[in-house]
Simulated assay, not measured.
Amino acid sequence: MAETESRTGRDETADERADRMWGELIQEVRVAQMGVQILFAFLLTVVFTPKYDTLDDTNQAIYILTVVLGAVATGALIGPVSLHRLVAGRRIKPKAVEWASRLTFVGLILLLATMACSLLLILRVATDDDFVPWLVAGVVVWYLICWFALPLWARRRHTE
């Protein structure tokens, strides 16, 4: 090992760290990809059901927004796979991991928006109660806590 190579607490080179981080990132992306792809597939079928024609303009607009968000989230969460394939062997894995990580983060935010809009649409169609926006807001807060607040708290509390 060259003395100029940076070592981490795991006693790994920058390339070894990039390899490990890439493997971890791809495992994380697999979970999110599956969820967004199933949700997106479901959303694509809604327009072909008889119920769609009975939706008012607001609910149709929410549906269209939800489909577009689902499509964009799918693109962001599949993006790391394409990125890896197109830059493989170019000796830029540490940068590729950084870019893929950012794409994944954007994908998670878009998935959050897709899920919130989906829930809003479903609850608006299922019930016309005024509590629907509050219920959706509560679920969004829960997602924010689970997906972002808790991990950021743990990162701040348990890292140097």
Score class of each variant (00 low, 15 high):
E3I: 07
T4W: 07
R7G: 09
G9T: 15
R10A: 14
D11M: 13
D15A: 14
D15P: 09
R17D: 06
W22H: 08
G23H: 15
Q27C: 12
E28Y: 07
V31A: 03
M34K: 08
G35C: 07
I38V: 15
A41Y: 08
L44P: 05
T49Y: 14
K51L: 15
D57W: 08
Q60R: 15
Q60D: 04
I62G: 12
Y63L: 09
L65Q: 11
T66M: 07
V67N: 04
V67S: 04
V67F: 05
V68S: 06
G70L: 08
A71W: 03
A76G: 06
P80M: 14
P80G: 13
H84C: 12
H84K: 13
L86E: 09
L86W: 10
L86R: 11
V87E: 08
R90P: 06
P94M: 08
E98V: 03
A100F: 10
F105H: 06
I109E: 04
I109H: 03
L110D: 02
L110A: 07
L111Q: 11
L111V: 13
L112D: 11
L119D: 08
L120C: 04
L120Y: 04
L121S: 00
T127M: 02
D129R: 10
V140E: 04
W142M: 06
I145N: 00
W147L: 05
F148M: 02
A149D: 01
L150W: 07
P151F: 00
R156I: 06
E160C: 13
